[in-house]
Design a binder for these strands. Structure first.
Length: 373
RNA sequence: GGGUAGAUGGCAGAGCGGUCAAUUGCACUUGGCUGUAAACCAAGCGACCUUUGGUCUACGGGGGUUCGAAUCCCUCUCUACCCA
């Protein structure tokens, strides 16, 4: 299911086969947590050319819920999106909604952030939800602390994450056995261990023993300096098999993605391009002839605040070198700033398209660089 | 012509003798967002300076009372409403 095709230094170029089609790696996943990439629709995705979307078990469990997903026939049909979907397990919400949950060895008791209703979230429930969603790539239910984390807490996160990964794997194997190979989903384990080298290493080894379709590196970009993140990657990636995809969860800024690619990571997701877009920050190129150096040494970009007064009269496109719908259509910085000023949804749509296009384009250039190295 | 109520920072609107360069909201400016409780959050928003502090100018104009006034008094101007 994962074919490695080329390498450039530590960077890898491959194809990941899923039930809804092949994905060229390395790739970036736009985030549709609740089944929608805010402000965008299928015609936007078609122009963007993203190969996959990411969604979330916790959020889709609350709405629309397992029953409706099953009755309607999975998220692909509900969203009218026929390409691959990866789902996060709800593990991130154990972190981000820490004030609304209680951790136990068996799972997590959540109080819904919507109506307060209590749910006991277990590895099995996460798997059941992800199956109702029908996602192509599913994540184990995991637990991780923020940064910095005490050694004992990090150690516990590894212990729980492995124990839960085993339960996820059992549930997933049992269900997939009965299905034809062509519709089987992939299950990924998630390496934890905070910034501790020995914990990260043993986490990876424990998950390898369980045997997953791919391995994610989680618990990063939670407040640690980027150098720590790179150090963790340097420690973890060599522990992972070369014939399985590697996924750095939730990362990150463009240069962080590039640094991770160079260290052998194949998959990425992050809210930054879409959230920053909604908040008026856009990524733009600083060189006309490409975003990424041919040897992957550098990425040429800057972030600008399009809401800033200095764009009041600017006739420039967001990024004059960009070919995305927003930039190619001739919308000026002045107009997009105006749209933000009057709080029109078109502002967020146009910047979301642009920022996602930046990430999709960055990944395409990275793939190209590895292919032609 | 007579009466009543008002006039506060870009706007709205508190304050009614000192703790007021002035609550709050909006607007504005600048930051921040990393497996999305995020169309969110934070800071700034009279001027100047030797900037955890200081000086000056400010609550319609002018004058006064007071140690001290956005706050009290007089007067002028303007606004709204009511009566002729």
């Amino acid at each position: 299911m994962f074919n490695l095709k080329a390498e450039l230094g530590g960077a890898r170029r491959g194809t990941l086969r899923t039930a809804h089609g092949d994905i060229e790696t390395p790739f970036f996943m736009p985030i549709a947590t609740k089944g929608a990439v805010k402000y965008l629709d299928n015609s936007d995705f078609k122009q963007l050319g993203n190969q996959i979307l990411l969604s979330n078990a916790y959020h889709l469990y609350l709405r629309p819920g397992i029953e409706k997903l099953n009755s309607f026939g999975h998220l692909h049909k509900l969203m009218n999106w026929q390409k691959p979907i990866l789902t996060d397990s709800g593990g991130f919400q154990v972190f981000s909604l820490a004030r609304l949950r209680k951790l136990t060895d068996d799972g997590v008791v959540f109080n819904s952030h919507i109506d307060g209703k209590e749910t006991f979230f277990t590895p099995e429930l996460s798997m059941e939800i992800q199956d109702a969603i029908g996602s192509d790539i599913r994540m184990c239910f995991d637990y991780f602390p923020g940064y910095p984390a005490d050694y004992d807490v990090a150690k516990k996160s590894v212990y729980l994450t492995t124990a839960w990964a085993l339960r996820c794997k059992q549930w997933h194997d049992m269900v997939m056995q009965k299905r034809s190979k062509s519709v089987r989903s992939l299950l990924f384990g998630i390496v934890q261990g905070s910034s501790y080298k020995d914990l990260r290493k043993s986490s990876a080894q424990q998950l390898l023993a369980v045997d997953f379709d791919g391995y994610a590196i989680g618990g990063l970009a939670v407040g640690e300096p980027p150098e720590i993140m790179y150090e963790v990657l340097d420690n973890v990636v060599p522990e992972l098999p070369t014939n399985k995809p590697r996924y750095l969860m939730g990362v990150g800024q463009p240069e962080q993605v590039l640094e991770a690619v160079k260290r052998g990571v194949d998959m990425f997701d992050c809210v930054l391009p879409t959230r920053n877009a909604r908040h008026g920050q856009v990524y733009i190129r600083t060189q006309q002839d490409g975003l990424v150096a041919q040897d992957l040494s550098e990425i040429y970009y800057e972030k600008i605040t399009i809401k800033g007064a200095i764009h009041d009269l600017s006739e420039l496109a967001l990024d004059p070198f960009c070919e995305c719908y927003t930039c190619a259509s001739g919308y000026s910085r002045a107009y997009i700033r105006h749209l933000f000023t009057i709080d029109d949804p078109l502002a967020k749509k146009l910047t979301s398209i642009h920022n996602l296009s930046f990430y999709v384009q960055m990944m395409a250039e990275i793939r190209e660089a590895i292919d032609y190295a």
